[in-house]
């Protein structure tokens, strides 16, 4: 019995979900097309006899079964970036285009920021916001190592980011990180409903701010690495209900090659909008990944 038991009724195949928590994840990396082509990189890794397999759902993602992937020359030179598999989903949903203006509201350590920058081929502008000075260091270091040349860093409280407008905004929110248990055991032991509710207030503030800063017709992607409906569906619902997002709607999250579970339609006594099923829940035993939640909101 632990904190996860409260999800017994929402997670499909409960026993498999429980069992997978004890199986560590192998490392994953993203090929950084700002610095190297995919074929050349794969050839280099194969030459060294490294065990690497591209994801089936994303050609730039790799499963990399090596001891210290962070110390590979390819990592140090910025040809690859160690990044969680599902962390590569939100930028793909955001779908940034070269030349656009993008805001990454909770950017550090910059895995998604630099993926966005690569998708834009270094053209246009990414504002990477990170309030914590300590976390800015990691963000800057990753942007520089990966050769992201279209990123400017700001340090605002994301809830009060002063002005826009942006074509697309990513809110990869601070969360209770229950989906990271396979990476570092103990996350779930620290979880509590109160902690989720404390984070919820911040998350709603961030998502409402993002909707305010987005151009009409623009896209906001909200993601967390937690299962807690308090930090996921309840946050999205609160932001959709807010005045500044009148007419905003969810677009269905579908990533060919990955299996999503639909967003919840109710939790405890709360009934969500029927469109909440367009959001996606990723459970670790279904795709052999971490746990994740993502919603794509289109502003009208």
């Amino acid at each position: 019995m632990d904190f996860l038991d409260r999800y017994r009724d929402i997670v499909p195949d409960w026993e498999a979900f429980r069992a997978v928590q004890f199986r560590p994840l192998i490392s994953t990396a993203r090929i950084n097309t700002l610095k190297i082509g995919r074929d050349v990189l794969l050839e280099r890794l194969a030459e060294q006899g490294l065990d690497c397999r591209p994801f089936q759902w994303y050609p730039l993602g790799l499963k990399l079964d090596v001891e210290s992937p962070g110390k590979l020359l390819e990592t140090l030179l910025g040809f690859i970036h160690i990044q969680e598999e599902l962390s590569m989903v939100p930028p793909l949903l955001l779908d940034p285009q070269p030349g656009e203006r993008i805001l990454d509201l909770c950017a550090s350590p910059g895995s998604k920021t630099t993926q966005i920058s690569a998708m834009m081929e270094n053209r246009g502008l990414v504002i990477a916001n990170e309030p914590s000075l300590a976390r800015v260091a990691a963000l800057r270091s990753n942007c520089e190592r990966l050769g992201a040349m279209n990123v400017a860093i700001t340090r605002y409280d994301g809830r009060n980011f002063p002005r826009g407008l942006f074509h697309r905004v990513l809110v990869d929110a601070p969360c209770s990180a229950e989906g990271r248990e396979r990476r570092g055991a103990g996350v779930i032991a620290r979880g509590s409903c109160q902690r989720s509710l404390d984070l919820q207030a911040l998350q709603i503030g961030l998502l409402k701010s993002a909707l305010r800063l987005t151009v009409p017709g623009g896209v906001v992607v909200y993601s967390t690495c937690t299962y807690s409906p308090e930090e996921n569906e309840m946050v999205v619902q609160a932001a959709l209900d807010a005045e500044e997002s009148s007419g905003a709607h969810l677009e269905k999250v579908k990533t060919p090659g990955l299996r999503e579970c639909p967003g919840l339609e109710e939790w405890k006594a709360t009934i969500f909008s029927p469109q909440m099923r367009f959001a996606a829940r990723y459970y670790p035993h279904i795709n052999d990944t971490g746990g994740f939640f993502v919603a794509k909101i289109v502003k009208s």
Binding site: G99, R101, N122, R123, G124, L125, I127, V136, R140, C143, E144, G147, A148, M149, N150, V151, A152, I153, T154, R155, Y156, P162, R163, G164
Partner: peptide, 19 residues
């Protein structure tokens, strides 16, 4: 510092592109 050519909105910046 160097950053890809694009218009920068009036914000307070911690970093502009790459040192």
């Amino acid at each position: 510092w160097a950053i890809s050519d694009s218009e920068l909105p009036g914000l307070s910046y911690e970093a502009i592109g790459m040192r």
